[in-house]
Design a protein around this nucleic acid. Sequence first.
DNA 1: AATGAATGAGCTTTCATTCAT
DNA 2: TATGAATGAAAGCTCATTCAT
Lengths: 214, 214, 214, 214
Amino acid sequence: MTENQVLPKLGPGQKSLREDRTAARRQQVLDAAQGCFRQHGFHGASMAQISAAAGMSVGHIYHYFENKDAIVAAIIDEDVQHFSSEFAEIGRSPDIMAAMIDHAGAVVRRILDGKGPTLSAEIFAEAARNPTVRRVLQDADKKVHDIVRETIFKSGRAPFTEEQLEARMEVIGAMFDGLEMRLIRNPDFPREAVIVEVRRLIRYVLSGEDTAAD
Amino acid sequence: MTENQVLPKLGPGQKSLREDRTAARRQQVLDAAQGCFRQHGFHGASMAQISAAAGMSVGHIYHYFENKDAIVAAIIDEDVQHFSSEFAEIGRSPDIMAAMIDHAGAVVRRILDGKGPTLSAEIFAEAARNPTVRRVLQDADKKVHDIVRETIFKSGRAPFTEEQLEARMEVIGAMFDGLEMRLIRNPDFPREAVIVEVRRLIRYVLSGEDTAAD
Amino acid sequence: MTENQVLPKLGPGQKSLREDRTAARRQQVLDAAQGCFRQHGFHGASMAQISAAAGMSVGHIYHYFENKDAIVAAIIDEDVQHFSSEFAEIGRSPDIMAAMIDHAGAVVRRILDGKGPTLSAEIFAEAARNPTVRRVLQDADKKVHDIVRETIFKSGRAPFTEEQLEARMEVIGAMFDGLEMRLIRNPDFPREAVIVEVRRLIRYVLSGEDTAAD
Amino acid sequence: MTENQVLPKLGPGQKSLREDRTAARRQQVLDAAQGCFRQHGFHGASMAQISAAAGMSVGHIYHYFENKDAIVAAIIDEDVQHFSSEFAEIGRSPDIMAAMIDHAGAVVRRILDGKGPTLSAEIFAEAARNPTVRRVLQDADKKVHDIVRETIFKSGRAPFTEEQLEARMEVIGAMFDGLEMRLIRNPDFPREAVIVEVRRLIRYVLSGEDTAAD
DNA sequence: AATGAATGAGCTTTCATTCAT
DNA sequence: TATGAATGAAAGCTCATTCAT
């Protein structure tokens, strides 16, 4: 602000400084919004609440997001990316079965130790009626499944048909998603004991044992 | 009941006429609301939409329900009662393990053939932030668990500790709830194949086999 | 209701029985309404509240009163008649000055020991903006003033001009009405002491002493 | 204040610009509301009417007032402050008795020449049933009485006991409040003549003459 | 970049009133 | 005479969004 200050030349550094700040401000909004959405849901949280939580005026939020739906979409995308990248990582490990079993506990633990199931529930509800959001969820899911399926079959060690694998992946996926719902249903959810069981189960499901008979 | 009785001449039929009509009108609202909630969510559905769907003026709905939340609560209660009675029935059968395995397919099929996962997702989301609704869900869940646990242990054929059972019930419960989320995530959900896998899994989980080793 | 009951012939007695009942039911509504109006005001009290208090269905009230305003009007009329007849009585006594002074305490006491100033306040507020109600109040007031003025001047003992009397009646009237407002303003209103002062004042005002000098 | 200061360049004028405008807009609402309340009463005036009168959207009024009650409260407070400060001023004058008598006419004239008794009546009615509003009225009244009482007794010229003074203040207070009710009751209220009588009366009441005998 | 004043549509809810029974 | 189901208009209030500064 003073006259004798040397203005730094415009360079890549300068620009990224601005961009960094922009990105940070944007993230500020997302973090604030996530908190509000957890507490009051996508529709229950008002722009006023979000702006207060973000330490930013209501109007200024519209410099970063076109409208409230865009914030919701960004939050959902953030969350979906986070979880799907986690699963994709598992899919990329050399021995996918071992990796899945090994990482199962960690994944479950992360689910159980997260910020609670509120946001996931909110996302599922939104996806169930909003086709756009549903598409985001479905695309992410498809990617994960593709990776896992391919890896398993390229490894040549799959002791079951592709159709069987598909069904088993559904079952495991259901278990992961369902654990969050159980957190809502049971306030005394026994984390540790469940982790043990989940590991046991995944091993069984992927081992290909076929003792089933109708 | 005697012939010379003077007082209320209302036979069961007569009295029921009004009461029946009242109950029917009330149910009309619930059905309409359920439809609206599925389409637009609890907060997205307006009283105007519900009243239109119920073929009733907005104001008149308030003769049957104190406010919109009361409708939401009634819908949730209806749904929770429905599912919890279904599971309680399984818990009451003599050979609970056989019953659970036998009925698993049927239950899953009913889940998958239902009116879609929208309402469940909506309920989970609401329960995740609304303590009153959460309590309803948790109480129902506790009842079901109590019944199943007691039955299994009274039968004296439980090949695992109570703690283990608890964890396994969580896992199975997660699977049931999770299947609805899978319906959202995967538009090509392979119903039949999954039913086979689910039956296999429940049998395994309840059989008490303990091949797991960390 | 029984067949062998002898129906009394239609006579004046029979008719008045019906009429009595009708009047009683009507009064039931008025009493209930007065209670509600005291508690919630004319606009704050709902027909539902009144009907509940009157032990009568909402719809049936409309057999006795054309609409809610008619109830309000009836209540106001009842109250105004009550007070104006009280004052008119004073006006009809032979020695009006003595009577006014003598009865002052009684009147004030009745005001102070009544069911509280709520209804009066409500009536003044309504009269202040509703011309119809205002007219009721003004007509009653005029009657009372006419009686008092005539009596005093016919007695030939008035130690002041008609204009002076008019003003003094205003002052006394203001005091009476104002006492009710004081009951609202001062929760520790000193009844007995005020009664003494009021008597003293009325005597002074009507005595015609004219010590005033501007 | 120093020249090389960097921080808030906002001078008093600049800051005031916004704040002034805010205060002005707020007052705009109050003025509009007062008008509406006079015409239709606190409950009869709708937010839509007020917003129209204020030249402001309905929603925007809620930036200045939490709800309609807050507007009512602010109006009442304004009015109460206005009158109580007027009376407190009288209480602060050196010769309170002379001041009260001297200012009586002015005060009465102001009452009689005001915007009519509607608002006062409305306030009394509201206070009679709304405890919060009643408290405001009562607190203001207590303050005024405290000031007047103290002043009179500190002057050492009180020709009556404290209890007597209290009662006489009630009587004078009743007269002031009652005059507004008389304006409602009598469309031909004789202002000038009444002012003369009121002056005479106050002088008598405060003079301590005790010609009264029961 | 940042504010917050301002809007208008839409929400839930209430309520006086009517009418079939 | 008596009920209460039913309506429709209007109320208070909220909120996403825009815009001048």
